[in-house]
Design a protein around this nucleic acid. Structure first.
Lengths: 236, 236
DNA sequence: ACAGTAATTGTAAGTTGTACAATTATATTT
DNA sequence: AAATATAATTGTACAACTTACAATTACTGT
């Protein structure tokens, strides 16, 4: 008899030799200097104990998108998170445990918002992109593709702000873009370009933590963005 | 007892109430003036007799990509076709016949190459994009997304040539781009830009069918493209 | 008052995009 | 043989954008 204390998805995994559908989430965060991704120590055989993206199985009565959102909110405790479908991974041998097709999603969250306890509960950890451990299955491929996609999106859509606090400074924003593109930008050109988009609102307040002079805070002006959206803007 | 003469995929469709995985293909062609898509009259309930994208179920021992390629070659008779995964459609109610998650692909083929007989066998037909019938399920959504993706791809990758004959003229190429973008371009600027990419090889021969003067044929120079690729070129 | 540090600002040169029309090569007609 | 008709081919000036580059400013701590 099967051990009833096993999580539901283990039971599914073992009992169906038909095709299973899973989701995996690449969850990006930004700590002010570098990009990080949320990884978990897998609890499920095969490959238990190895580092993995956050994932789970799609249930019979939920959409694939809902499944991804469920997995994400279980781990983070948040509901309104930027998330986008990345790619379907469907090779027959991608998971030695069975025929599992996985739909990968990538998500952007503010690390600061984040509940430490939930992470511990799930054996999850923020890992800098330049210090990645070996990942199971095709998860490294997923991560690589999501980095590329993030660059594409960030070039044409104002989603970088999802990774920053509500209020942020121009140097912070530049650090983020430099981390995403793994490149250095000129401060003068960067500021001119960003401010030229007219989607940032300057505040009176300054962030004094990084320098004597202090840097002005800005907020994303989504109203103005929507106005401009209909014309086809583009970033960076 | 179930009628054994039904095609295999019908039998599958009826006997599993678990999740099924399908692929749908958006197959684009170009007839010299307008873009067309290959549609079929569906033979399967529900919605039999309605217009549909070309699709089928993913088999237990084939990758999702292989399934898409299989569906595509069954209909066209060709193997080396440009094809790219588009998106996974996973709403629970997208197919009234059951829980079917579908991975959409888009493909580009040369209409001229095409075997008419195979099309008749499969009830398939080339339909101009501006004369689309109502499509089943979420197939219209798939088609809309694939048009957008085609525009993106064609702007950065030399895949437009997949839709043209081996030898083509600059006016033909321009017609193609104008069809894809639903826009008019200036001939001088278009020619300058395209030739500036240095990925076309000019032939001695002219196409005399379209004018007295005749237009020089060109071929895509994939060797030179590969050389330039490492630098990050971009079209249009 | 001074020193130190990071934020902020401007300008010139190069590159690319855009708008616009005359000339050329050929087949057909006169 | 010359004239005509048709679509292909070619150039140039201006505007917009990108890139490279360094001095000044605002503040805190000594």
């Amino acid at each position: 008899m099967i051990n009833d204390t096993l999580p539901v998805n283990i039971a599914q995994y073992q009992h169906h030799d038909k095709l299973l559908l899973a989701v995996d989430c690449i969850i990006f965060g930004f700590d002010g200097t570098g990009l990080k991704v949320l990884l978990v120590k897998r609890e499920l055989e095969p490959m238990a104990g190895k580092w993995s993206l956050v994932g789970g199985f799609v249930k019979q009565n939920e959409s694939v998108n809902d499944a991804a959102m469920r997995i994400l909110s279980q781990l983070t405790g948040f509901k309104n998170i930027f998330m986008e479908q990345l790619h379907c991974y469907g090779n027959t041998d991608r998971d030695p445990g069975g025929r599992v097709v996985s739909i990968a999603y990538f998500a952007l969250i503010r690390i600061e918002d984040h509940a430490e306890e939930l992470l511990k509960e799930h054996n999850a950890k923020w890992v800098p992109l330049d210090k990645l451990p070996r990942l199971i299955f095709d998860h490294k491929q997923m991560l690589d593709l999501s980095k590329e996609r993030l660059r594409q999106r960030v070039a044409n859509h104002p989603i970088g702000f999802e990774l920053l606090p509500e209020k942020f400074t121009l140097p912070q924003l530049q650090n983020l873009y430099e981390a995403i593109y793994e490149a250095q930008f000129d401060k003068r050109n960067f500021n001119r370009k960003i401010l030229g988009l007219q989607i940032l609102q300057k505040l009176e307040e300054k962030d004094k933590t990084g320098s004597r002079k202090g840097a002005f805070y800005y907020v994303f002006d989504s109203d103005n963005y929507k106005k401009l959206e209909s014309e086809g803007i583009s970033f960076i």
